[in-house]
Design a protein around this nucleic acid. Sequence first.
DNA 1: GATTAGCACTCATGATCGTTGAGTGCTAAC
DNA 2: GTTAGCACTCAACGATCATGAGTGCTAATC
Lengths: 341, 341
Amino acid sequence: MLSERQRMILSAIVDDYIRSAEPVGSRSISKRSDVSFSPATIRNDMADLEELGLLEQPHTSAGRIPSIKGYRYYVDHLIRLGGVKEQDVKRLRGLVAEKMNHWEGAVSHAATIVSQLTNYTSIVLGPDSFHTSLKHFQLLPLTETTAVAIVVANTGHVEHRTITLPEGVSMDDMRRIASLLNDKLTGVPFYKVKTVLYTEVANELSSYIDHCEHILTLLEDTLKEETEPKVYLSGATNILTQPEFKDVDKVKGILDVLEETPRLMQLFQSLSEGIQVRIGTENGVEAINQCSLVTATITADGHLLGTIGILGPTRMEYGKVIGLLDYLSGDLTRLYNRLYK
Amino acid sequence: MLSERQRMILSAIVDDYIRSAEPVGSRSISKRSDVSFSPATIRNDMADLEELGLLEQPHTSAGRIPSIKGYRYYVDHLIRLGGVKEQDVKRLRGLVAEKMNHWEGAVSHAATIVSQLTNYTSIVLGPDSFHTSLKHFQLLPLTETTAVAIVVANTGHVEHRTITLPEGVSMDDMRRIASLLNDKLTGVPFYKVKTVLYTEVANELSSYIDHCEHILTLLEDTLKEETEPKVYLSGATNILTQPEFKDVDKVKGILDVLEETPRLMQLFQSLSEGIQVRIGTENGVEAINQCSLVTATITADGHLLGTIGILGPTRMEYGKVIGLLDYLSGDLTRLYNRLYK
DNA sequence: GATTAGCACTCATGATCGTTGAGTGCTAAC
DNA sequence: GTTAGCACTCAACGATCATGAGTGCTAATC
């Protein structure tokens, strides 16, 4: 149980440290206009807060900085959400503007804008395979033995792949296969596609084609890429402007995670709906122990359409970021409804 | 005119500096087993080489490092091309392997492998609009008022975009437009598409549809994306392992260029065929004054199919990199021929 | 005339050491 | 419970100095 004054002090220390990136001393807090206690009083409370694990001291004669637990308390109990600035609203308006008729474009554009407005890194995930289904499958011949397979999802996302026809399978065969796939698979969610492929489709296919397995593997491969959500990244280098990341080696680890999509996806595992904040080690990824990730899900009638994440130092402007994400996720939901309803 | 000994000394300094990243002194050269001159002699030559602008001295009592002009001379006259190592060949083999039947996949995979083998950053450009043509155009309805436009290039590259139908234009109209486009545009190189669109297509279109201009702009927009070559980047963070880039601010500038595709493309302007080396300021881009870029074009019967670039510090292992690119561009050309001939 | 040994000189690097000042914890007074 | 006072701590900074790698020059040697 924290006293009112302790809460105020913790809040002040977090705010100050977020601004300055330097340990905060008792004197500088007592000087604030809204504070009427002497440094000594504040020191006592600071010692208590440190005992509770909410503050840390880099060394004996330095001020205090928030611990991860301290940030957590701040985010859960003390934070004041930042409104979105007038000028920022204007830029975001563009996303739902009349001319924007391209979901993927809007989403990736959102990533860019958010990273610019916050000066952090933004990571945006497209819809996952649980909530997208196959809309259309098509084969376009390129040469006599190659063709482009095109997979369209109900979100308008398109994935493609060049395939080489197996020996003994003609382009005509493939055309028939394509139309069979459209019959059987249209409307099927992607996570079920594999099952349907190996039951219903396999059955019919085996009746008039021999090299069944080979073709099925080929098709499965082609459809698999759709299963993984698309990732849009923006402002990856913003982390370099933060004073606590002046050290190249620290930064390397973080940028490496950003560069490898699978490791990046790991960060987004087991997120619940709405806005979520993960501070430092809470992320469970060694390399970004010193970063926080704020995520917001975009949903329309129960469907997860995507996730927006903002990655910055633990010393992140949580209030501003959460406010922005809250606003943005609403905007994107509206856009989605306009496009696909 | 450099004497034989001066050439040998320059070569030794470049080699040593590439390895160690530290200024090279006269003594360390004279110690090499293949050198039989005293440090004093070497010092005299070093002074001459410095006068010629081929070497530089960080400060009076330090050894010499190559200047940009020095690297240039080295690359043009002294370099010994590195063969490709057995184990590296094995990894590259995978690219042309039977199972690899996907040009874009191979190209992006090549980028990854090269960046790993060299520890530099690799940048791979897909075919540009001068050498690709439209293979197929298709519209797939998503909802009543939206559709996915899919553009397939003769390389197998696919670009897509969700469009909202203009008022008063039915899905049937669009279907007719799509079939008209396929008639008129199939086989047309992308750089000519815009012209054809506004002459031949516009003519016929206006005869049975009113809102002609709006639709044309929409189509032009859709096709435009294909005009810009795709960029694959890999190993962007490798630059962080170089000792001369321990400074975060230096690195930020470089990574920023890599993050923004248009600025990245600027680097590839006006490249001639074959392998080309651009050292430091020769790149003409402020932020990467301290980097070198080695590029190789991939061509098949006169068509530019792509470009592979390797970006590293000016202190780059030119011999190894050039050898690797030479090998790789041959491999990719073979792959292309197998896939599309 | 080219090469080399010898030597004085330069200068970045790194260690040592005292100074400074921000900040703390404790005690005693308010 | 709050605060003034004070001794104490310690990172950061700057000054000073030793070290040594490397140079340029001169004079001797091949």
